[in-house]
Design a protein around this nucleic acid. Structure first.
Lengths: 346, 346
DNA sequence: TTGTATGCGTTATCAT
DNA sequence: ATGATAACGCATACAA
């Protein structure tokens, strides 16, 4: 036996009514007699009737669900963002469907396609660090899919973007170093073409300039981390710590970079912040516990998720209103045309 | 303009064919001429045709999606489990729909109802720590919903359960203490009625007994943590560390408990493992980084998620086969009845 | 080889 | 106040 739920048809058959009567009774329509209403409602409750959301979706051309594409669910930054997204979706009556890109461009495309093929009303997405070609996103957008880009945002003029104030965070972190006497500050960032990277590096260089410290390009490191974050960071750290102009501080501009730098320092017995200052972007709750001397720039992932979800749902629902309005106009036109034809005929 | 995708009907109209021909051409049916097939396939590709999964769901009475109910997405244990679930779902062509119970019994019921109302083919769930009444789950099960219980499992005979070997893990952790000279070992566990708690405490007491150490009930602490984990653990720690028979080691039997104990020890300047030994269950990748002296029992959340998802999908698909078989039998019967009636008639 | 008709569950429109 | 019917997009049994 499989899960067989009761339908309007079943209720109608059981009570000797038509499906339309039952449907109207369930929706508490004014044109149904109180007795019938009561009968139907009672039967529905007793038999635990639930409208079939799929039939509803087909009819209403919407699914009441939103898709979320992140590179990795188990990344604490994204899981917190999803948490925020889910909380908003729940409030507004939407389902959340999750997909991962695993930082793989091909998987990103196929996941977006999958979500887009009319099973979701809108998509929240964070592009993978591999992604520099955004035509797949643009294509979806042109076809009218509701999209909101978050965290690692795409920079199209007309797609909503939600991200933390990376510039400000990096600026403040760098200033924090300078005020504490550090001057040779290295910056380790993600892939250079990502907007978050540009913003963070921008804040870093601006802070240096504002304090009359020359920006040394050799002190800015980018990484692509195709799954091997630690090894990549270890390479960068080795490189950085073995130059003649060794940095005295490091700005680690992402969660994974921060923890990797921490791990490297621990393995190499590099004391923080005595031998090298460190400010890291992080969401991992334990960071301050494990390395009390580490200054952390908290990324408000949960709030970002909430804001992005609110934006997307607002977009979905406003577009639906416009559509409804257009339908009314169209219907009126058709009606007028029909009646004028009627007049012309006899 | 909203997202308007092309349908079979559109293709049929454009090519002057019927919808069924197009449908069959797309499914590469043998009864369609090569030329027609080619025409249809070409047009479909050019116009980026995607079948509407919702219409398919309605027709096939399945949604190709599975629901996952956890208490908190942002909990690293669950986000890793979801990661595993998603990877299997992806392989098998299923969507993953996420719901959170936030450790709230009412929310757990409503989320399950929501997922169950025919929008998912099966549900993977981990009950909230508040849950001791399982009638909502049992009800779903009786109605034929595919269910797999994971992590915090329910103990019905006929619902699949997937969880880590908690007994063994706790047994080995406790033995580890004993071999290292600790004898006054306290155990901090979750709510006492949870199966995972019973297993973990069972492993702990068994290890003590097997090494001829008396089990002291005062050394076993349970917590319910309705959102305030740290405060609760801090209370327990204070209580434990201020008895005349102060424990020399602590077995922390969950992720959150482990990190809370760590935090408490740090705040109170209790050195680990010199003043107090600690073995913690954990999934947080940083644990070994921040407290190198901490022994960690890794919980294979990802693998658990994969196994649970595989089990659920297998269940869904085998049940579908049975249903198909029954349909064939039924159809044959109807056919035979119809033909015998035909014979009887003239 | 192709077209027509039906049904999945629901609601809206039109009829009674 | 209630019933019959069409439509949403798709697949398929049946008809031609």
């Amino acid at each position: 036996m499989r899960f067989e739920a009761i339908t309007i048809k079943d209720i109608a058959k059981a009570l000797g009514l038509s499906t339309s009567t039952v449907s109207r009774a369930l929706r508490d329509s004014y044109e149904i007699s109180p007795e019938t209403k009561e009968k139907v409602l009672l039967y529905a409750k007793e038999n635990n009737y639930r409208p079939n959301p799929i039939a509803l979706s087909l009819k209403e051309k919407r699914s009441s669900s939103i898709g979320v594409l992140v590179c990795e669910i188990a990344n604490s930054f994204f899981s917190q963002a999803i948490n925020g997204i889910e909380s908003v979706a729940q409030e507004k009556g939407y389902n959340v469907i999750i997909a991962q890109s695993k930082d793989d461009f091909e998987k990103e495309i196929s996941s977006l396609q999958y979500l887009a093929s009319r099973s979701v009303d809108g998509i929240l997405f964070s592009v993978s660090s591999e992604t520099s070609d955004f035509s797949h996103v643009q294509h979806l957008h042109q076809r009218g899919m509701n999209l909101v880009s978050f965290d690692r945002v795409v920079d199209f003029a007309d797609i909503h973007k939600v991200s933390v104030d990376n510039y400000k965070a990096a600026y403040e972190a760098t200033t924090h170093f300078i005020k504490n006497g550090y001057t040779k500050i290295a910056c380790i960032a993600n892939a250079s073409y990502l907007s978050i990277t540009k913003e963070r590096v921008g804040g870093y260089t601006a802070a240096l300039k504002d304090h009359n410290i020359a920006v040394n390009p050799d002190n800015i490191f980018f990484c692509l981390h195709g799954g091997l974050v630690y090894e990549e960071i270890a390479d960068i750290m080795f490189q950085a710590m073995n130059t003649k102009n060794k940095p005295d501080a490091i700005l680690a501009t992402s969660d994974k970079i921060t923890t990797s730098v921490l791990r490297y320092c621990q393995q190499q017995n590099i004391a923080i912040p005595k031998q090298v200052g460190l400010v890291g972007f992080s969401n991992v709750e334990l960071t301050d516990l494990l390395a009390p001397s580490l200054t952390v720039v908290k990324q408000p992932a949960y709030e970002m998720g909430r804001i992005a979800a609110e934006l997307l749902i607002k977009q979905i629902e406003s577009k639906r209103q416009i559509k409804d309005f257009e339908d009314v106009v169209l219907a009126t036109e058709l009606h007028q045309r029909a009646s004028s034809e009627k007049k012309a005929k006899p």
